[in-house]
Amino acid sequence: MMWRFVGRRTAMLAATALVASIAIYGALFISPGDPATLLIGGGKPPSPELLEAIHRQYHLDDPFAQGYWRWLTGMLHGDAGQSLTYRDSVNNLVADRVGNTVFLVAYAALLIIVPGVVLGTLAALRGGWGETLVTMVTTALMAVPTFVMSVLLIWWLSVQWGWFPAYGAGTGFAGRVEHLTLPALALAASWLAYVAQVTRSAVRAELGSEHVQTARSRGIPERVVIRKHVLRNASAPIFSVSGVAVAGLIAGCSIVEQAFGVNGIGALLIQSAAKQDLAVVQALALITVVVFVAVNTLVDVVTAALDHRVSLGAGT
């Protein structure tokens, strides 16, 4: 049953990636503007002969089906095409920047999962004013958009206090940690609050469950009840929401990278979209969708393995 479940999720991943590739290529195929002008620059209008030569060289005039098939097969073979703006292959552009994005997402994920799970668990176990305080703070964080949080952190911790740099990604491990702390905090703030809220609800639900009350009535020590009956059964929803949070980081890192001047994949996507660099936008959009769906698929599979109450039937 589990292998069939994994097979269905993998098939859904492939189907989603295929539909997303058609949508991405189609949206940019019909977008206004001529990407060939990026190679010519300013000055007097280009001659029709020059535009025709550029279109022919970069296959800009190919019919939709032919162009889509060439692009998709190239992506499947690891060739994402050539950037008209940077005059370099998209593979090289991504390779130069992917390290910063991966480090930022991993840093933000750590800031989300560890404090979020700890705060939510403590709030549920202790209750009282501690739970009220955690609920108030997390609710406030969830209401602040990422770009607003970025501005607040730059003004407060960089301009006013000077604790962290507000621009760039740094070099080396220590330099990256220093430079990416503010971007990671801005990226993680709302998701941390979400994980804390779900953790609190999951732990509190398990505390009131019948099997926990039975374990307590049998005289099992409280720490054993909490560890084996409460936290273990609450781990599935906690892991699920943590996975969704990490997937959300992948989709939302563009705003933070642009705000803090981090030379990553998200910033490259925004800059390329503004310049109508179609090859870069198409490749990065498809990569983002595939990674996002792959993370969610992995979360579904692990959640089903952790919690046997999750249905593995065809209707899941």
Score class of each variant (00 low, 15 high):
W3Y: 04
R4H: 05
F5W: 01
F5S: 00
R8N: 03
A20P: 05
S21P: 04
S21F: 05
S21Y: 02
I22Y: 05
I22N: 07
A23V: 15
G26E: 07
A27T: 14
L28V: 08
F29R: 05
A36R: 10
L38N: 15
I40F: 08
I40K: 06
G42I: 08
G42Y: 03
S47N: 13
E49Q: 15
E49Y: 09
L50S: 13
H55Q: 04
Q57D: 07
H59E: 06
D61I: 14
G67S: 13
G67I: 12
G67H: 07
G67A: 11
T73F: 06
T73I: 12
G74C: 10
L76D: 04
L76Y: 09
L76S: 04
L76K: 08
H77N: 09
T85D: 06
T85F: 10
R87C: 06
R87S: 02
D88F: 07
D88I: 07
S89Y: 09
S89N: 03
N92H: 12
N92G: 12
V94W: 15
T101Q: 00
L104K: 04
L104V: 08
L110M: 10
L110P: 06
L110G: 14
L110C: 14
L111N: 01
L111E: 00
G116M: 01
V118Y: 14
V118P: 02
L125P: 15
L125I: 10
W129T: 12
E131H: 07
M136P: 00
T138P: 11
T139W: 00
A140L: 14
L141N: 11
A143Y: 06
V144T: 01
T146N: 09
F147G: 02
M149D: 06
V151S: 10
L153Y: 09
I154W: 09
I154C: 01
Q160C: 13
W161A: 14
W161N: 09
G162F: 02
G162P: 09
F164D: 14
Y167E: 03
G170I: 11
G170C: 14
A174F: 13
R176T: 03
E178F: 03
L180Y: 02
P183G: 10
A186Q: 04
L187T: 10
W191R: 12
L192I: 04
A193Y: 01
T199A: 09
T199E: 07
L207D: 05
L207I: 13
S209V: 13
E210Y: 03
R216N: 06
S217C: 09
P221H: 04
E222T: 12
E222W: 03
E222N: 02
V224R: 11
V225W: 12
V225C: 10
H229P: 02
V230K: 02
V230M: 01
S235P: 08
F239C: 07
G243H: 07
V244G: 00
V246L: 01
A247Q: 00
A247G: 14
G248H: 00
A251S: 04
G252Y: 06
Q258T: 14
F260L: 01
G261R: 14
N263A: 14
N263S: 10
G264E: 04
L269T: 13
L269H: 03
D277V: 11
V281F: 06
V281N: 11
Q282A: 08
A285F: 00
V290D: 13
V290P: 08
V291T: 12
V301L: 13
T303K: 11
T303M: 05
A304G: 15
A305H: 00
L306K: 12
G313R: 05
G315C: 02
G315K: 10
T316C: 06
